[in-house]
């Protein structure tokens, strides 16, 4: 068995009197797509903040490729809950942000992202401003900004949470296709059961605050996934929903 890319062991976090994460253990192997599914306000974003280094944990271990996560190491490419595109930067300059922070010149950075615009369905919009994009395009731009950083793992915080239902479905299938081709290592936060089942190799279900891992679901179906109507998919979805609504059973 290979070393996990990421491993959390009994991670805890509280904000003053508010215990947010009670006991979080999970692991993500290289090339795996793993989701954290949980109720609103459970502390899902907090898990990612511990990984990006925005917050320090109160206990437990975070291991990256077997070694403790060093503060200030910036090992992950993070996509925040809202797209966080800068309205004053053109789409192309938004997507190069991470590369520019790394010290690449604007020209080199642009040359690196330009070939990817077609695949991300954004060609022709390089020099538009984010305000001129539709919701789905904004999310694709934000994802492009995330993947071009070429970090060892992607952290996606409810990337489609703000989209209308139709666009969200469309984007989920698009992401499934992209992932099948690229096999990024992904940790996805979501509260959409269908999204989790469509995309993930493994799903961790969180309890309400203070959050524990209630159950772990492996999804043994090959990618690309069968449609939601397929019986195996429906069975897993039903099982997850039951766990969400009755976590104690």
């Amino acid at each position: 068995m290979s070393t996990p890319r990421l491993e959390l062991r009994h991670v805890r976090k509280r904000f003053g009197d508010l215990a947010v994460l009670a006991d979080i253990s999970l692991s993500v192997r290289p090339g795996e797509f793993v989701s954290i599914l949980g109720p609103s306000g459970a502390g899902k974003s907090t898990v990612l903040q511990l990984l990006t280094g925005a917050l320090a944990g109160d206990g437990g271990d975070i291991l990256v490729d077997g070694a403790p996560l060093a503060p200030g190491s910036h090992r992950f490419a993070f996509m925040p809950q809202r797209d966080a595109l800068m309205p004053w930067r053109r789409v192309i300059d938004n997507t190069t942000l991470g590369l520019e922070v790394e010290g690449l010149s604007r020209k080199t950075a642009r040359a690196r992202v330009e070939p990817l615009f077609l695949e991300f369905g954004l060609s022709g919009f390089e020099f538009h401003y984010p305000a001129q994009l539709s919701g789905g395009m904004r999310q694709r731009a934000a994802l492009l900004r995330t993947v071009v950083q070429e970090r060892s793992m992607l952290l996606l915080d409810e990337p489609f949470g703000a989209l209308d239902a139709l666009t969200r479905r469309e984007m989920q299938h698009w992401l499934a296709g992209m992932w099948t081709r690229h096999r990024w290592t992904v940790l996805l936060i979501t509260h959409d059961v269908r999204e989790a089942v469509l995309l993930s190799d493994r799903i961790y279900v969180l309890s309400a605050r203070p959050a524990r891992i209630v159950r772990r679901f492996d999804v043994p179906l090959a990618h690309p996934r069968p449609s939601a109507a397929a019986p195996q998919v429906a069975a897993i979805e039903a099982d997850i929903l039951k766990t969400l609504f009755h976590p104690e059973e």
Partner: peptide, 10 residues
């Protein structure tokens, strides 16, 4: 979120 994003990039 934009600040958190930049911070995550180092």
């Amino acid at each position: 979120d934009i600040e958190a994003l930049l911070a995550s990039m180092g």
